[in-house]
Design a protein around this nucleic acid. Structure first.
Lengths: 167, 167
DNA sequence: ATAAACTTTCAATAATTATTGAAAGTTTAA
DNA sequence: TTAAACTTTCAATAATTATTGAAAGTTTAT
C-alpha cells in the first residue's frame, strides 16, 4: 500500500467512525487529515485534500475548535489562517471523553435522576420504573466517572496498571 | 412528575441517546419501553405505546434480537409473540460493549493496523502517517481491551474496586 | 479610505436515514 | 384444507442531516 492510498484509507475510516465518538463525517475527516499532516494546513489545503466546499470546511473547523481539538496557528508572513489538531492521542482521548461527558452523558444522568425520583405511588409499574431508571443512573454514573478518571491521567501509567490488574 | 410523564421522558431521552451507544431512535425507544415494563409486550403493545408502524416495530425488534438485547417469550394461551429485554443493567452493558467492539471497534483497529504497517519510504509524511496511526491503533486497542474486561465481569466487584483505586 | 484577501453565514439543495403501509409470507385452530 | 391471526418484507415517502456556493462580513496592506 502506497502513502496516498494509506492516507485516504485512514481518513475515510476515521470519518465513518465519527459517529462512534459523536461527531459528523466531515468533522472527523478534517481532524484525521490534520492528525497525519506534518504541518498546519490552511482552509484551502483542507478543501482541496478532502474535496469539500469552503463553507463546509469553515463550519466544521469551527466545531473542531469548539471541541478544543483543533487550534488556529499563525504563520508569520502568511495572511490566511492555519490549523492543527492535538497530536498526542492520550490528550485527544482526554478532550473527547471530557466533552462527550459534558455534552451528552451528564444531561442524561440528570434526566435519569429526575425520573427515578418520582413519588412511589405503590403501584407495580411505578416501582419498576423507579427501580430500573435508578439502576441505569447508577451504572451510567459509574461509567462516566471511570471514563473521566481513566482518561484524565495525562501520563500513561494508570491505563497500563489497570490493564495489568485485569489480565 | 406523574408516572406517565416520567415514563415518556425516560423513553424519549433514552431514544435520543441511541446514537451514543450506536443504535437508532426507534430501536432505543423500544428497548427503553421493554426495560421499564413489568411484563413482556406484544408487537401491538409496542406499536400503540410508541405510536410507530407495524413494519417499523417488526424491523427494530428484529435488530434488538440480533444484538441479543431482546428475546421472544412465549405466553401460553396466547397466539401472538411477546418480547422482553435484558433487565439487568450490568448484563445489558456487557452485551452492548461486546457488540460495539465486534461491529465497530475491531474493524477500525484492523484498518489502523494495515495503514500503520505500510513501508517506510523515508519521507517525513510517511513517517508521520505511520507514527500517528500506530499511536491511535495502540490507544484504541487498549481502550477496547479495557472496556471489554471491565464489562465482562458479571459481578460488580471489579467496577467497584477500580473506582475505589482511582478515587 | 479603499480594495484585495480572506472567512463566515445561511438559504437552497442534495444525500442519507428512518418510517410507513400494504402485499406477501407464515403459523395455527378448527 | 382453509381461513383467520399474526409477522415480515420492501418499495415508496417522509424526515433528518450534511453540503454547497454565493453574498455578506472582516481583516490587513497600502
Amino acid at each position: 500500500m502506497e502513502y496516498q492510498e494509506a492516507k485516504d484509507k485512514f481518513i475515510s475510516t476515521w470519518g465513518s467512525l465519527g459517529t462512534l465518538w459523536g461527531i459528523n463525517k466531515a468533522m472527523a475527516q478534517i481532524q484525521a487529515l490534520l492528525f497525519v499532516s506534518t504541518k498546519p494546513l490552511s482552509m484551502e489545503d483542507v478543501m482541496e485534500d478532502l474535496k469539500i466546499s469552503r463553507g463546509n470546511t469553515s463550519m466544521n473547523l469551527r466545531q473542531l475548535m469548539d471541541w478544543g481539538i483543533v487550534t488556529k496557528v499563525l504563520i508569520s508572513g502568511e495572511r490566511k489562517e492555519f490549523f492543527t489538531t492535538e497530536k498526542d492521542v492520550q490528550e485527544l482521548a482526554r478532550i473527547i471523553a471530557k466533552e462527550r461527558s459534558r455534552r451528552e452523558i451528564k444531561p442524561v444522568i440528570k434526566v435519569l435522576d429526575e425520573v427515578s425520583s418520582i413519588k412511589d405511588d405503590g403501584t407495580e409499574k411505578t416501582k419498576e420504573l423507579i427501580k430500573q431508571t435508578k439502576a441505569l443512573k447508577d451504572l451510567t454514573d459509574d461509567l462516566d466517572t471511570l471514563m473521566n478518571k481513566l482518561v484524565n491521567q495525562k501520563q500513561n501509567w494508570l491505563t497500563k496498571s489497570v490493564l495489568k490488574l485485569m489480565k
